[in-house]
């Protein structure tokens, strides 16, 4: 059954995308100021996937997230102030300052996250099993990247979900990079076919178009809700801020001179290290590193911004209003969180 474009709640979806983007940008600023510790993996580029999938969830549905967990949490309605305070390590944060950005949990939203690549899928199995067993009608959604598709536990989860017909939606955010590795260089076959071969129906979707994600996710969530078992969404989306903030590969573009001065001398020493054999091979390897950096740079230039792609679905004045409202809401929440933090400190 095909639904017309009008039924897609584009305004609401775009609002969630803008909230997520604004929130990620606010986190980036806090991190740059040194107020957030450790790594920071932003979900900039994944907003359409988060908004399009989460829109179909209702109370009692679970989400299991990876290290880019904030966009789905924002779209799910988790309190932004609590999220900011958590990033600041505050006792009033979402997890009382214990979890931090890779380990965010909201029991009331049945939302959990993990920094262990691939682990969202088996956790999702558990939530799906509980829904099936307790007959709650709930579904579980697991978000992960294409890099996680090479983790054994994720492949095991696809099989188990299909074999037990569990109400699990597996959302693979394909941004083509596993940290500094181009995924296609370490991944065989085709991911959608991989899921299908394990008995999980799969759909590919443009992860920068929230309307398309929304339609594909409706199919997936409805299937799960009706007891027809798991499904797999392969959503292509860009990775606009590298693997994490301060990504050394991105620095090559943002501070070329500084980085080249740092990286080049030891590489030259390696090129000329004795015994000086296989020089041609060494030059090729150096070229390979250059090519990887080049591919990253090219993608940064060419990849579409999901906010651009999805924002076009709205009339310009409405789009501007939605963006402004999201900006103001996030700004206000972040400010209030900072005030609470300061007042206690």
């Amino acid at each position: 059954m095909r639904m017309s474009a009008e039924t897609v709640p584009v305004e609401e979806l775009y609002r969630q995308m803008c909230r997520a983007r604004e929130f990620e940008m606010a986190l980036a600023r806090l991190w740059e100021k040194g107020l957030i510790s450790g790594e920071m993996h932003l979900g900039i580029g994944e907003e359409a996937v988060a908004a399009g999938v989460v829109a179909h969830l209702r109370e009692g549905d679970a989400i299991c997230l990876d290290h880019r967990s904030t966009p789905p949490l924002v779209a799910r309605g988790v309190d932004l102030e609590a999220l900011v305070l958590e990033m600041l390590g505050d006792p009033e944060g979402l997890c009382c300052g214990w979890g931090g950005h890779m380990h965010l949990f909201s029991r009331e939203h049945l939302a959990c996250s993990s920094g262990i690549v691939g682990s969202s899928a088996p956790l999702g199995l558990g939530f799906a099993l509980a829904s099936q067993y307790l007959e709650t009608g709930g579904v579980a959604v697991a978000f992960f990247g294409e890099g996680a598709m090479n983790q054994g536990m994720l492949l095991e989860s696809l099989n188990l979900a299909a074999a037990w017909r569990l109400p699990l939606v597996l959302v693979c955010k394909d941004n083509r990079w596993a940290i500094t590795t181009r995924s296609r260089t370490v991944t065989a076959g085709n991911l959608a076919r991989r899921a299908r071969s394990l008995g999980v129906p799969a759909r590919r979707v443009d992860g920068t178009r929230v309307d398309r994600v929304w339609r594909a996710a409706r199919w997936a969530v409805e299937r799960a809700r009706r007891g027809r078992g798991p499904s797999f969404l392969l959503a292509h989306c860009p990775r606009r801020e590298g693997h994490f903030l301060g990504d050394p590969m991105l620095r090559v573009y943002r501070d070329p001179l500084g980085q080249v001065l740092e990286i080049a001398p030891p590489l030259l020493r390696s090129l000329l290290a004795r015994p000086l054999s296989r020089l041609a091979s060494r030059v090729r390897c150096l070229g390979q590193i250059g090519a990887t950096l080049g591919a990253l740079g090219l993608e940064l230039l060419l990849e579409a911004d999901p906010l651009e792609r999805s924002g076009r679905l709205l009339e310009p004045s409405m789009r501007a209003r939605v963006e402004e409202e999201a900006r103001r809401e996030v700004e206000e929440k972040v400010m209030r969180a900072m005030e609470r933090r300061v007042s206690r400190a």
């Binding site: 690549v117 691939g118 890099g147 996680a148 090479n150 983790q151 054994g152 536990m153 596993a178 940290i179 500094t180 590795t181 995924s183 260089t185 370490v186 991944t187 050394p248 590969m249 990286i263 030891p266 590489l267 020493r269 390696s270 090129l271 290290a273 296989r278 091979s281 060494r282 090729r284 390897c285 150096l286 390979q288 590193i289 990887t292």
Partner: peptide, 29 residues
Amino acid sequence: GEDVVMLRRELYVRFGPRRVRQTPISEAA
């Protein structure tokens, strides 16, 4: 291991792709 081409880029350039090999995120395997 994961990302060794970038993490061990000096060894990668010196010893080549046969000896410094980048893996997928598949620790168990």
